[in-house]
Design a binder for these strands. Sequence first.
DNA 1: CGGATCACG
DNA 2: ACGTACGTGATCCGA
Length: 872
Amino acid sequence: MTNEKNKLLLIDGSSVAFRAFFALYNQLDRFKAPNGLHTNAIYGFHLMLNNLMERIQPSHVLVAFDAGKTTFRTEMYADYKGGRAKTPDEFREQMPFIKEMLEKLGIQHYELVNYEADDIIGTLDKMAEAPGTNFDVTIVTGDKDMIQLTDSNTTVEISKKGVAEFEAWTPAYLMEQMQLTPEQFIDLKALMGDNSDNYPGITKVGEKTALKLLHEWGSIDGLYENVDKLKASKMKENIIADKEQAYLARTLATINTASPIEIGLDDISYDGPDSNEALVKFYDEMGFRQLKEQFLSNNGEAIKELEVDYQVIDSEPQVKPDDFFYIETLEDNYHKADILAFAWGNDKEVFVSKNLEVLKAFPFPENTYDFKKNKVLLSREGIELAPAQFDSMLAKYLLSTTEDNKISTIAELYNVGKLAKDEEVYGKGAKQAVPSDEILFQHIARKLHVLAASKPALIKSLEENDQYHLLTDIELPLADVLAKMEIAGIAVKADTLKAIGEENEARLSKLTREIYDLAGEEFNLNSPKQLGVILFEKLELPAGKKTKTGYSTAVDVLEGLAGQYEIVAKILEYRQIAKIQSTYVQGLMPQIMADGKIHTRYVQDLTQTGRLSSVDPNLQNIPVRLEEGRKIRQAFVPSPGSVLLSSDYSQIELRVLAHISQDEHLIEAFRHGADIHTSTAMRVFDIANAEDVTANDRRNAKAVNFGVVYGISDFGLANNLGISRKAAKEYIETYFERYPGIKAYMENIVREAHDKGYVETMSHRRRKLPDINARNFSVRSFAERTAINSPIQGSAADILKIAMINLDKALSNSDLKAKMLLQVHDEIILDVPKEELDEVKSLVKSTMEEAMKLDLPLKVDENTGLTWYEAK
DNA sequence: CGGATCACG
DNA sequence: ACGTACGTGATCCGA
């Protein structure tokens, strides 16, 4: 050993891992490896290590772990650490990877049968104090027991909050905080016991009393030598009676500094990772992008941000047909956004411009990113964009829905260099601003380069997956159709909304007064928390479910009470109206643009199943089930001289299920055109004649049919029908018995998902299922239900997409003026001139019914009206 | 910014 | 034994 001071870092791995797990517990879902493993504890542990290694710069490091449930302490006291809650599966599954991480980092870890991490640490600490050694020791742990080890060269750091805050205990700090020496700290635990380790000290003695006794008598020995001097009291009796227990507690609390460990200080010197490649690979496996980058940059291997040369063009652009084209906007909502700049070119040369005049005679190339956005933006400049041949956003979406489809993500996934995030270039929130031309141009030039450079890899992957046709035959043509629908928009009458709004306001203020009256005080009716307190504490109504934050006041809970309590009925009414008012009256009104229309945006690259979503505003969830809300639809109207036509698939998901499962009974039922829920009721409940099926039978059968599509469980069905779990289980068993094809489908698709890690729709749309082999039951079960549902929901989505493309083609090839306006998952809403109605109605019906050939018919129902309210 | 609630298929 | 129905978006509250 040299004369220079060595620095030894000893970490209680089991306790620090546990701390890390809970420090990031609220982000459990965010921290997932690509293979589905939870990583919050692994990541948190790494962050703690970063903090410690940087601050302490140790020459020697060891992470000690507890070896198992039994130790020499359990031999002395069987209940030691007994009665602890089981460690969560999400935590347990991470432990092997924490150890793997330490190995990759070049940090030794150690555990010893029959001993705890504390004892290993205590023993090494002792070794580091032997004559001839010269160490400063830092011990890091999550609980206070180890404070007893602090001395002139040993600091004990206790993890306090998050992953970066520690409290450093030295003898001086211990004296200041508790007026104790490290030896006395053991006696403190002897007197008060340890709840979390599950051993008692002296009855009724907690920290306060224990401290008082120690300050008076110096030690547990001192106390018992002088026990006669204590004045008679219950406490004195306890002290005398629990003497044996107290000494046992002292033995249990004392860290063994002479454990038979087989490693020494020479074995734990630290000199960084053995293999940088292995560490980087580990980061990749865990999905630790930031840690990886940080590591690489510290090693001078930082992935460099792309350097892309570009030319600024102000007129007469040179464009090759197989170039890429990209438009940049700050705002997401391209119905309002300004074009900041645009770029074109390929991976060799890039051109940029912000002069909109350049666009007027632009020969738009065939490759782009987010064609739909381009088309809508350019239509505002009077340019009508023809469909593209390739769209990187849609290609990436088809390949994987696990991440977003930003260009920076594509760059990362396909290894075509690093791209700054938009937030870094443009800022976010209030700080968002347009940067200088130089920064803006460089950024979009980089994007253009990434698009061009990644295209071959995207196409190759699509072909390997047999998905290329999904891009060319479905998503790309659909983008063009959707752009036209978004540009068209739907007329919404502000006056009608206003009238509904005024009526609502009157009802809301009356209800508010009545509810305050019944509650006996005023409170914020929109706060579930305050409402819970009023109902279940002040008024003492029987509380149902609980949520993480308090009492649940959701509808299903309140509905059970509405019959008995006037206030609950009024709250339900208030909620219903308040929802309509805030989301649909006040929410929609400002969305009506200068042309009197609402232009939604369909998000084409988001859902896990292949459905669209609708935003700004969402026109796929306009109320319909309850009359009060349905009135909102009176504000949605056709163009002058037209009517609205709404055509929807009947039972499309069950039909898809019948087809892909090939269940003969379900297929037969649809071929006969019978009411499907009635038919199910007859089969499952053994009813011979359709007339004998009661409304209740049908309702139950309907719930079972829905359940099947969702990946049924007895619990879910029971919950939905309000029946016992046992009864629900019997329903399901009978159902599977009567529809064996369905049962086989479910088993097969789940098995396939387990084997492949993904499932597919009829047209090879994929959904990856990283959780399908999870060790955690509920995580895995969720993935299994998803495996059952996604091919059904996704195939239905594909069918409607195909129908929309075909219908658009048919309308374009005709003289018809009818236009598609909206899509709501299984229905299309069109604006149809009155004189075209008959023709369009049957065209839409046949196009939709023939969109895909199944082994049973598809069926379309339609409604028409002068408002959307009537057309349903 | 996450949770609770509720609107749709 | 575990703890749930599948897929979305908007609004409000409260740390």
